[in-house]
């Protein structure tokens, strides 16, 4: 049962001399809701881009659903649904059209397309807005369209890079409930990042904390709290990553601090 769906080995990613992902190792088991947490610039999105075949690593290997991200790109892409940190909808198309093109790209048969799209739009509460242009949607509605689209081709593994960024409490609650539901009902493994640690603590079955491209700790929330002798995941997070505000790597002082560490 508990087979691994993600295997990351000694993953290394550099931008020039700057090491964004520094030899990280972790794995995700089928059925888990895996939280990938870390301060700004920790290397979360960079890691996700490599795991989703959009960026090439400088070293190490990544296996998704048993396929290598370099050798079996197509198989990896078929296995995953991705909701990126920044929006990736075509705003000049309607919600329906965005999902429609997606369904063709993922080889969903013509007979099933319409029903699947409408079911999913209904699932995220946007069926009555299906023919509206995405550019007229609010941030939360756009996010819901993206989630519907990410689920359209029944992925085995769903990536969500800060899915609730900029959303109100209602929409956030709605989304997390959805993610739980998808995980349970559709048996989809979930890999997400978030800066809202309370929410992450509630939903994640496994947590990894990364900082400066290195993984500091992996375990269940309970294990992490125990190890750090703290009462909440947020406290544990602060204890592990410190109170410094992260400045972009271009900033000289930050760079020096990083190397001094």
């Amino acid at each position: 049962m508990n087979k691994e769906i993600v295997n990351v080995n000694n993953l290394l990613k550099k931008f020039g001399d700057f090491v964004a992902v520094d030899n990280i190792n972790f794995s995700v088991k089928k059925g888990e809701i895996f939280a990938f947490l870390g301060p700004n610039g920790a290397g979360k999105s960079t890691t996700i881009k490599i795991m989703t075949t959009l960026s090439k690593a400088n070293g190490g290997s990544v296996e998704i659903n048993g396929f290598d991200v370099l050798k079996d790109k197509k198989k990896v892409r078929e296995s995953i649904g991705v909701i990126f940190q920044d929006p990736t909808l075509d705003e000049d198309l309607t919600a329906y059209e965005n999902l429609y093109y997606h369904s063709i790209l993922y080889g969903i048969s013509k007979a099933k397309r319409k029903k699947k799209i409408e079911d999913l739009l209904n699932y995220v509460g946007l069926l009555d807005r299906k023919n509206d242009f995405v550019k007229n949607f609010s941030g939360g509605m756009k996010r819901r369209v993206e989630i519907a689209r990410g689920l359209l081709h029944d992925p085995k593994l769903l990536f969500l890079d800060e899915p609730t960024l900029g959303l109100d409490v209602q929409t956030r609650t709605f989304l997390w409930n959805h993610i739980k539901k998808v995980n349970k009902e559709k048996k989809i493994t979930v890999f997400f990042t978030s800066h809202n640690l309370d929410e992450a603590e509630k939903i994640a079955t496994k947590v990894a904390i990364i900082d400066h491209g290195r993984i500091l700790i992996i375990g269940t929330s309970e294990e992490i709290k125990k190890k750090t002798k703290t009462k909440s995941l947020e406290k544990a997070f602060l204890k592990l990553t410190g109170y410094d505000i992260r400045v972009d790597k271009a900033d000289g002082v930050d760079r020096m601090r990083r190397f001094r560490r």
């Binding site: 989703t52 075949t53 959009l54 790109k73 197509k74 198989k75 892409r77 078929e78 995953i80 991705v82 990126f84 920044d86 929006p87 990736t88 909808l89 075509d90 705003e91 997606h102 790209l105 993922y106 080889g107 689209r149």
Partner: peptide
């Protein structure tokens, strides 16, 4: 435009 507004990513991550 597609790079800037993100739609390019949607196409690049598709199995095509």
């Amino acid at each position: 435009w597609d790079k800037k507004f993100g739609f390019l990513k949607e196409t690049l991550v598709a199995p095509v």
